[in-house]
Amino acid sequence: MREITYRQALNEALAEELARDPNVFLMGEEVAEYNGAYKVSQGLLERFGPKRIIDTPISENGFAGMGVGAAMVGLRPIIEFMTFSFSFVAFDQVVNNAPNMLTMSGGQFNIPITFRGPNGPAHQLGATHSHATECLYANVPGLKICTPATPRDAKGLLKTAIRDNNPVLVLEVELLYSSKGMVEEEDVELLIPLGEAEVKREGSDVTIICYAQTVPLALAAAETLENEEEISAEVLDLRSIKPLDLETILKSVSKTHRVVIVEQDRPFCGVGAEVSYRIQKEMFDGLDAPILRVAQEDVPMPYNEKLEKAVLPSVEKLIAAVKKVCYA
């Protein structure tokens, strides 16, 4: 194991899959000559050349659709959105073309495509650039969605996504690109299956379900809860939103009997709404308190720093929710 950044982990995943399969190519705005808006594709143009690392004009609908078309005839495109807030310009391709093709064609055309890029609020980017899109895309049958929070998960999930025969959205976290974590050596093939949650910290009193940028937040809250409140929180990282690993969730909840879901998206029809529905449906009698959710406030994201902070989930909000379900 060695310590690398989340950005480097993604870069390694791309490089390894490009080297492994000549049908894989990377396409998007500024991915080649600029080395990526967030430098995730650093050095790839130099290594793989302009045939496989392709700069596009600002035409999200156009190049996302190109990816779908190329996938129909056997290539395995990786389409980078500079942020998933821009994927709405390509919404029709991501929602109508990529995931519907297999059904509409009676099973003749699967679409092995990866859509990737940063997702969720970053820092003071305002309403148009701060969207957490997972709850929107999770509503669409035919899409798979993963949300890595650590360098190891970023590498393992992206590699799996590229090899998947379906459209997969890899929703990265802008604020974590420079974060560091332990990852297997480069000569180890690291593949993390889609649909497998992971317990990031063991605990016994309450399960905190989190994903993406709420994972470090949940770990920080769990640390404080342990030290200051003597509450032992289990931190469960979903890693994939769809497919959802209900088995691991239920296993944890059957131990703790209390749940707080902390999510980076909006509260109305958010990921936590679905997760809490599934938990209560399967084990209503196993719960000692109502499930609580900590999500964004239901407003367009304000630019002002204090207001933005008020909109987002926080360690303080999460601790308050945990204490509430523990009646502490």
Partner: peptide
């Protein structure tokens, strides 16, 4: 129409 361009790209 973008799909067609992707097929031609392939």
């Amino acid at each position: 129409v973008p799909l067609a361009v992707g097929m031609a790209f392939a």
